[in-house]
């Protein structure tokens, strides 16, 4: 069941399209990564879902209680004359869900702002504001959490802490993260949507996306030397390129997976090599992202030509 779904959602600013009719399907309880280069329409999509912008066309359907969708912009901002505890108090209070002080202090500790109660927000760094933004959203007990670049302002340790916190919320909260940090997205998200120039060019489970872009490359590790094995592999028709990348590790570019899977064990046995491991080269999300966005741009250019 989807927590959020959009139908032909579009946004136009005069003649410029920020979103060209996208159909997002965000499963309940998932961590959904919204990816895309700058200007792809990620922030616009999040702001429309949050109710901060009106769509030019299309619809947003949110399955859940009204007022339980929280949004954190990429650069959080608060009244500089409030303390962090007061910010959380205001955040929950405005929604009519006041929280006792011990809950507020617990939340500050949870987002890593435990020792800042006495300070005013005016002295906060961008990273601290990002943490406070997350705390201000979480104190409202959201069912859906929309996060625009939530860890961009944080140091690597802070990024890890916040992403750990979000991962722990999985299943109880539906989280949509727009981010450029593809490593974190790859580690934490189960579903992704890729936007490019206002179009949704891919959407689905992350594992499926990575699998669909799997490269036809194996890394075969045998007890060195691998000279005999490399020589035999160089003659087979199902391998397009073979090289020993380090002592005993052979990189095999195969053409046909079925044939390669059937014939490699036989070849290995005949060569007398001692097998240590066989792994398939997996593309990173970054490689897949670059590949699909580049393909999309190229096909758009060809279409224009």
């Amino acid at each position: 069941m989807n927590a959020i779904s959009t139908t032909n959602l579009g946004k136009r600013y005069r003649s410029q399209y920020a979103l060209k009719g996208i159909d997002l399907e965000i499963p309940r309880g998932s961590i959904y990564g919204l990816l895309g280069p700058n200007g792809a329409g990620k922030t616009t999509a999040l702001e429309i879902i949050a109710g901060l912008r009106h769509p030019s066309f299309g619809q947003v359907q949110i399955q859940g209680r009204a007022g339980y969708t929280a949004y954190c912009p990429d650069v959080a901002e608060f009244e500089p004359w409030l303390s962090p505890a007061e910010v959380l108090e205001v955040s929950a209070g405005l929604l009519g869900r006041p929280k006792p002080m011990d809950k507020i202090n617990d939340m500050l500790a949870m987002v890593g702002l435990k020792d800042t109660e006495a300070r005013h927000v005016s002295g906060f760094s961008r990273g601290m504001l990002a943490r406070l933004g997350l705390g201000a959203a979480l104190i409202c007990d959201p069912e859906i959490l929309l996060l625009d670049e939530p860890v961009a302002a944080l140091d690597p340790l802070g990024q890890h802490e916040i992403m750990d916190l979000l991962t722990n919320l999985r299943s109880s909260v539906t989280i949509v993260i727009s981010s450029h940090d593809l490593t974190e997205i790859e580690q934490r998200c189960d579903t992704v949507g890729v936007l490019n120039a206002g179009e949704l060019i891919h959407q689905g489970p992350l594992s499926q996306l990575l699998k669909s872009h799997a490269q036809h490359i194996w890394y075969l590790e045998v007890r060195p030397p691998a000279t005999e094995l490399v020589a035999r592999l160089a003659t087979v028709p199902w391998a397009s390129a073979v090289s020993e990348v380090s002592p005993g590790v052979v990189e095999i570019h195969y053409l046909n997976s079925e044939e390669a899977e059937r014939k490699l064990p036989v070849l290995l046995a005949n060569s007398g090599s001692q097998l240590i491991s066989l792994t398939q080269a997996k593309p990173t999300l970054e490689e897949v992202f670059l590949s699909i966005t580049k393909n999309n741009i190229e096909s758009a250019e060809q279409g224009e030509a």
């Binding site: 007022g67 969708t69 912009p73 608060f78 955040s91 405005l94």
Partner: peptide
């Protein structure tokens, strides 16, 4: 005048 702060309020008011 401060969009991120406005977003904070706008997503919370009835």
């Amino acid at each position: 005048s401060r969009p991120a702060l406005a977003a904070f309020y706008r997503t919370r008011i009835r």
